[in-house]
Design a protein around this nucleic acid. Structure first.
Lengths: 152, 152
DNA sequence: GCTCGAGTACTCGGATACATGCTGTCCGAGTTCGCTGGG
DNA sequence: CCCAGCGAACTCGGACAGCATGTATCCGAGTACTCGAGC
């Protein structure tokens, strides 16, 4: 149970795209900025394109841009775009196999699955409660200025 | 980001051990009950032994037993025993690499790391709030009776 | 000087190898029970 | 009949393969800018 490293890159990239306010950023530019493999970062960003979080423009002055207001892009959106929407704890219902599955009619979902699901919902809610805009505000204007000038 | 399947097996096994109230259960018995690979389930349970959640007795009448009161064994204990204690989102601090790391003194941890950590704490707290005893109570006495008789 | 057009350089996009870690398996170490022989 | 000792069977324990997913990479498709020739 470990989160993909691409999530961190995606979030940082989204933050920068938010600051650029519509001006496209190339994956190569971001890659050198973060010292990450260019092709891999690009692949990660494409996952955001597939989820309609950012838009991709080809050509010499192309790049990636946020296509939704940053207030409406939650951390949950980015995480699920990279990691997928499958739950952390997928109950394989081992009780249904072997002898445990022959204990007669079962009373709904098992308590374990229920408890794990509840905890996971708490996690997802916490992620959904924060947006890219919130992150930008918390980061402050100083970081913003320095980042933008370094990217120019 | 997917939870190991061993967690489900470990939780179900703990629930059964709780019901057995000190009587050891062999991994082989649990494996046939759940229709799982015996050696693999045993390996999983040994992780619980390493964390002093359950005890292992060798010999002909050996097996695994809970060695702590089930009220004090939280889901978090079991999950961290199987999955380890490393956080879901390990911030690699990509801002420190490349150009982004040369933007001057940084004001503490980045906001992204902070936000992700907060969500994760919410998850961990939800898991820590529930114990094996709680699960047993939610499961009900009917399931308990059937399970115990099937294991005898 | 202005316009049109081809070329070029840069971008994203999909298909393809490599690595790490979960999944599954094997054989060895250790302990308890049961049987057997003797007292 | 009781007890000690030995053997066997069962258990856990650690080391060893197999496979799936994340990580990393390459080359092809497409677009905007640029430069030059023609009008």
């Amino acid at each position: 149970m470990k989160m993909t490293s691409g999530v961190e890159a995606a979030l940082h990239s989204c933050l920068i795209m938010h600051w650029r306010e519509g001006t496209p950023v190339t994956s190569g530019r971001l890659a050198t900025f973060f010292a990450l493999p260019p092709a891999y970062l690009q692949k990660t960003l494409r996952a955001l394109v597939a989820e309609s979080i950012v838009g991709a423009a080809r050509g010499k002055s192309g790049g990636f841009v946020l296509i939704r207001p940053s207030e409406s892009i939650s951390l949950m959106d980015v995480v699920s775009a990279i990691e997928g929407r499958s739950p952390l704890f997928h109950c394989a219902e081992i009780r249904l196999d072997g002898q445990s599955g022959q204990l007669g009619p079962r009373s709904g979902a098992c308590s374990i699955s229920h408890a794990m699901h509840r905890a996971e919902m708490s996690y997802r809610r916490a992620l959904a409660a924060q947006s890219i805009a919130d992150l930008a505000q918390q980061a402050g204007s100083t970081v913003r200025e320095r980042t933008l000038s370094a990217l120019s």
